[in-house]
């Protein structure tokens, strides 16, 4: 099984966001980067697949500029078969269509075609979940979205997710794209320190793709507007019993009909 994991990283949500530029690549450069929970879930899912079958080969591609090199090494510390950075300047990362086509081109350029492409349900700071389906469409491959877990049953890889009415399991017949979401079973493990040190010494390829014609224009970038409120919060006071009674009265109009 050949697995390609696409990773992007996001501005670390534990730090205030620095917004000095209206260019997404510069915004990315101006802020410390970490893997998002969905990047981590995608990478961990690939590692779980390899845990089950040692002949699994994992390629990780981190989309970004030179500021992303630390993320490339962080991925490499999991002893992947290959790691690379995809120069993202040509992708127009805020443009879903352009990014999907750029990623598809990068995947087509790999020495061997992956059987499975894993990508977080959101890819970086500028995707809200539209990218993975567009990537699958650009590749012409089927999509299994919101995968949460994977396991081997004999020679068959099973991808698992919670559906609306049942757990859904897909026996994989390559090639597939799977978007991966957060789940307690795919929290990213810690790499061994010796592998972290080796990853720091290891080189990696920088991939490039031809600039893609954008399907959209970025017209403005600004800090998010504060959510407006009608009035300040009305804190209920008195004993807890009194607060509960007041809240029950407030919620009375929405009480379920008997």
């Amino acid at each position: 099984m050949k697995v390609a994991v696409l990773l992007a990283g996001v501005a670390d949500p534990r730090h205030p966001l620095t917004l000095r530029s209206s260019r997404p690549p510069e915004i990315r450069r101006d802020n410390p980067l970490v893997f998002s929970p969905f990047d981590e879930a995608a990478l961990e899912l690939a590692l779980k697949i390899r845990d089950g079958r040692r002949d699994t080969a994992i390629t990780a591609i981190v989309a970004g500029g030179a500021e992303s090199d630390a993320l490339v090494r962080k991925a490499a510390a999991h002893r992947l078969d290959s790691v690379a950075r995809l120069e993202s300047e040509a992708l127009a990362i805020w443009d879903v269509g352009a990014t999907a086509h750029g990623l598809a081109e990068a995947l087509r350029g790999l020495a061997t075609r992956p059987d499975l492409v894993l990508i977080g349900r959101e890819f970086g700071d500028f995707d809200d979940g539209a990218l993975a389906p567009c990537l699958a469409a650009a590749l012409g491959w089927p999509l299994f979205d919101l995968a949460q877990f994977a396991r081997w049953e004999g020679d068959e890889l099973i991808l698992v997710r919670d559906g609306r009415s049942a757990e859904e399991r897909l026996g994989l017949r390559p090639p597939w794209v799977a978007s991966v979401t957060n789940d307690r079973r795919n929290r990213l493990r810690h790499p061994l320190m010796k592998n972290v040190m080796e990853a720091r010494r290891r080189g990696f390829d920088v991939l490039t793709v031809a600039p893609v014609v954008p399907s959209a224009t970025l017209k403005a970038v600004a800090p998010a507007r504060e959510r407006t409120r009608r009035e300040p919060c009305r804190f209920l006071t008195g004993s807890v019993e009194n607060q509960v009674a007041e809240l029950a009265a407030y919620l009375q109009p929405w009480r379920a009909l008997r």
Binding site: A11, P13, L17, W94, L218, K219, V221, P223, A224, R225
Partner: peptide, 9 residues
């Protein structure tokens, strides 16, 4: 950016 930035496309 996790709800911290708005863009106009």
């Amino acid at each position: 950016c996790g709800g911290r930035v708005e863009i106009v496309v």
